[in-house]
Nucleic acid binder design. Structure first.
Length: 426
RNA sequence: GGAGAGGUGCCGGAGUGGUCGAACGGGCUUGAUUCGAAAUCAAGUGUACGGCUUGCCGUACCGUGGGUUCGAAUCCCACCCUCUCCGCCA
């Protein structure tokens, strides 16, 4: 959520910033609602003041044993006026909140222009895609050949966009997850957390998935009102909701492994084959909660932490800065990590690292006590995949495949695979 | 699933209709004392929104939402959450 004060005082600048995303802010509607709100607010406050003063004098008169009937008559009609004013104010405030809750975050000035992913800017590349002296297979062929990935049986059980992993491939994904958690906790200073996979709408509002993106979420059909998490970002970031943190505890750095559930509404026909885009996938997520001054540096750190995973796995990747039109609702700046997939001869997203500044903090009411002012101030939140395990599995399979259909195990994963160096075709 | 208790400020904890934004204690900040510290003493210490003479004033907030009342932290209703005991259970 944007700062209401900023919306009031700099609405044109806000509008211009959001226009870069392709978001059109209805300034007239906002100004209209805001001025009505203010007028009603002053009116209602005044009425309440009058009522409070009279009520107080009734109490005093009563205590002295005086006749209170004239006072009661005087205050009588104030109540009706007040009730009417309060009703109108409530309506306007609700409309205003609805409007403001649907406005995306302001973009950082360095975000490149552009409408969609074709305008994203490559910042750097690491590693060199391997030269193969045989015909490379994609993960689907590799998985089906060895029986490690079974889309057909998954479809029987749950429908399309699910996969069943078996044997060494299932274990390889688990190895990737364990490896990532160990690196982030052991080398990067993160605290591992285990969190709910079902969350309340409040939590989803806090991180910005609601109210606008309900279609992307799975809701459970029962007597409790919960939805499946689309990313660990939701429960992990909400760890600091409704709090005033001591400045000394910042920065907080959390890592969590969770499954993620996405309905992928509106993505029909996109990546329908294979494990790239599933309703359910595993991810290791990184979250930073920092003082505002540290946010920019934290984004670089978090991105570097995710990159370290790909480097240790020796997977070629590139880093791109998302352009204005491709940045998510709550982020002011985002870097994507794209891993090389030989099966597609393309770099594909495997991590997305975002600085949300105070956007989520304001929705969650997550604050810290500023040392200089002594006042509570909003924290800044950042999140990024470190990294998506399902896609990492694909990347390892495709990049480490051999002519005979076997897959070499990356050196750093071997301890997690019982010392095995090669996965046989089963 | 059954029975009970409870949700108040940074924390603990009073408060059952009026002068309660809220006693008291702890914490924290500042000052006094000290060579310094501890101890002690004194003062201060919530959040949000709004008004204007920028320092004050006003309004709201005691789990959430309704209701009763001139007036609600306090009474009534619904809901949410937490805890304890019993049962069941990975």
């Amino acid at each position: 959520m944007l700062d209401p004060k900023q919306l009031r005082s700099e609405i044109d600048a806000v509008k211009a910033n959001l226009a870069r995303r392709g978001f059109e802010l209805d300034v007239a509607q906002f100004n209209d609602l805001e001025s009505t709100r203010k007028r009603l607010r002053v009116e209602v406050d005044g009425l309440r003041q009058a009522r409070n003063e009279r009520s107080k004098s009734i109490g005093q008169a009563k205590a002295k044993g005086q006749d209170i009937a004239p006072l009661l008559a005087e205050v009588g009609q104030l109540g009706d006026q007040l009730a009417k004013g309060e009703q109108a104010l409530k309506q306007v405030e609700a409309a205003l909140e609805h409007l403001v809750a649907g406005i995306p975050n302001l973009l950082h000035p360095e975000v490149p222009d552009g409408r969609d992913e074709t305008n994203n800017v490559e910042l750097r590349r690491w590693g060199t895609p391997r030269e193969f002296d045989f015909e490379v297979l994609d993960h689907i062929a590799l998985g089906e050949a060895g029986g490690g990935i079974d889309f057909d049986v998954a479809a029987q059980i749950a429908g399309s966009r699910f996969a069943v992993l078996r044997g060494n491939i299932a274990r390889l994904q688990r190895a990737l997850i364990q490896f990532m958690l160990d690196v982030h906790t052991g080398e990067h200073g993160y605290t591992e957390v285990y969190v709910p996979y079902l969350v309340s709408d409040r939590a989803l509002f806090g991180t910005g998935q609601l109210p606008k993106f309900a279609d992307d979420l799975f809701a459970i059909d029962g007597d409790v009102d919960l939805r499946l998490i689309p990313t660990a970002e939701v429960p992990v970031t909400n760890l600091v909701r409704d709090q005033i943190l001591d400045a000394e505890v910042l920065p907080l750095k959390f890592v969590a492994h969770t499954p993620c559930f996405r309905s992928e509404a509106g993505s029909y026909g996109k990546d329908t084959r294979g494990m790239i885009r599933q309703h359910q996938f595993e991810k290791v997520e990184l979250v930073h909660v920092v003082a505002p001054a540290m946010a920019a540096a934290a984004l670089e750190e978090l991105t570097a932490n995710a990159e370290a995973i790909l480097r240790q796995l020796e997977l070629p990747y590139r880093v791109v800065a998302l352009c204005a039109g491709d940045i998510g609702f709550g982020a002011c700046r985002t870097y994507d990590l794209e891993v090389w997939l030989p099966g597609q001869q393309k770099y594909r997203e495997i991590s997305s690292c975002s600085n949300c500044a105070d956007f989520q903090a304001r929705r969650m009411l997550a604050r810290y006590r500023d040392r200089d002012t002594g006042k509570p101030a909003l924290v800044h939140t950042l999140n990024g995949s470190g990294v998506a395990a399902g896609r990492a599995l694909i990347a390892v399979m495709e990049n480490y495949q051999q002519a005979d259909g076997t897959i070499k195990v990356p050196a750093v994963l071997q301890p997690y695979m019982g010392g095995r160096t090669t996965l046989e075709v089963e």
